[in-house]
Design a protein around this nucleic acid. Structure first.
Lengths: 225, 225
DNA sequence: TGGTCACCGAGTGGAATTCAATCATCGTGG
DNA sequence: CCACGATGATTGAATTCCACTCGGTGACCA
């Protein structure tokens, strides 16, 4: 049941930064086409060199069409980021469903595998590292991490009986920040990712969480209470 | 001797991205004044909303003056980044000198303290997270991390007899990436930094490195060879 | 006083964004 | 089944904003 709780309460709802809901059929294709184009451009020039003209041309649309759907350039990046996050959560759910999970560690491992897989296969996935440092409190990288940590905590509590509570959420936040950093580094220059950083990421996560949630630590905790 | 090796071989040399060496006296003040202004603006609007006009106005100069010293907008950011890195290294050296170091852990702790201290006191210090995602292979965040990891490795090898080698450097790179991420998160919204993330950062670093370099691990390593 | 050094800020060009005109699609009445 | 108006969708020239240039002017020095 909570396995796909990761998808979030608003999964499927249109992102709020789009200007106009598509009414007609073709618009939906336009919208995702624009994002596909943006993703391709992101892979080519990086997400700060991107121009609205590049996106429009790549999508076979005109400048005006971009602005019909998005209020400005960074809104497109936000939307692309959001789509990447949604696809990541979906992939985690798929991965979790496809694996036989015996301990919480298997679940954490799946998360890493999903992330790495998307880095390799999803065009423009590096957009997940996009953080708009302006006043907007929404669409904040920390909020994404926080949300994901809470959902993952639910899964680990319900499936593997980890003790629920703010400590678990906090530790998962820490774990996610570390994994983000190490995997970003792994893919910094190598398109397929430097394996040493990926492996070290898994190791670090396991060691960090094992400190509190290994069978031994848990039984000690149980004995103490 | 290697304690201030952290400063780097080119410490003191003018950054190469400055257009004209200041000849007259007042120019030096202008140059650092421009960077101070840029730092202030970075704190106000973040380093992607910054405009050359803002920098010039804040520094009491004109647009042209900015371009007299820096070839373009990102060069200013690079220079500010560079200054922050240099000050960080200087602070680490100061901190190392002022503390009584009994184990390598004390040195690592000093590094964290220096970083946190600068985040709190140095205007615009968040520029350390600035990464120019374009073709320029120099001025690369990963290169900074790599360079710093090597220097820190030298210190730990010479002062605390840690075993030299690529493993040490790699592990320090990993440690630096993790610390960067956790401290950036600590200061993401709180100007003074969320203490829980700072404390957890120290803990994580210690646990991670202890796995290989605790006295026990080292003696096991020595016995095996 | 002539020769640099510094500085200024209007001007240029390119990219972001707007908007009035045009095209496409849909629902509806004939 | 076919006009045909209403509304959605698209266009791209015009506008605005901002990085960056450059010729002119004052400041320092010898």
């Amino acid at each position: 049941m909570p396995l796909n709780g990761l998808l979030g309460e608003d999964a499927g709802a249109a992102p709020q930064q789009v200007r106009a809901e598509p009414i007609q059929q073709r618009s939906a294709a336009r919208l995702s086409g624009l994002l596909d184009a943006a993703a391709a451009v992101v892979d080519e020039v990086g997400f700060d060199r991107i121009t609205t003209a590049m996106i429009a041309e790549r999508a076979g649309a005109s400048i005006g069409t971009v602005y019909r759907y998005y209020p400005d350039r960074v809104a497109v990046l936000h939307a692309l980021h959001e789509r990447a996050v949604v696809r990541f959560r979906q992939r985690v759910v798929d991965e979790l469903g496809a694996s036989t999970l015996t301990t919480w560690w298997d679940a954490v491992d799946c998360v890493v595998t999903a992330f790495v897989g998307l880095y390799r296969s999803e065009p423009g996935f590096r957009i997940v590292n996009f953080d708009d440092r302006d006043g907007a409190p929404a669409a904040d990288a920390a909020a994404d991490v926080d949300f994901f940590a809470r959902r993952l905590a639910d899964v680990l509590v319900n499936e593997f009986n980890l003790p629920a509570g703010p400590e678990l959420i906090f530790r998962l936040e820490v774990a996610v920040e570390m994994a983000d950093a190490l995997l970003a580094r792994a893919f910094h220059s190598e398109p397929l990712g430097e394996e040493r950083f990926i492996a070290e990421c898994r190791l670090v996560l396991r060691e960090y969480l094992d400190r509190y949630y290994s069978p031994r630590a848990l039984s000690l905790l149980a004995a103490a209470s």
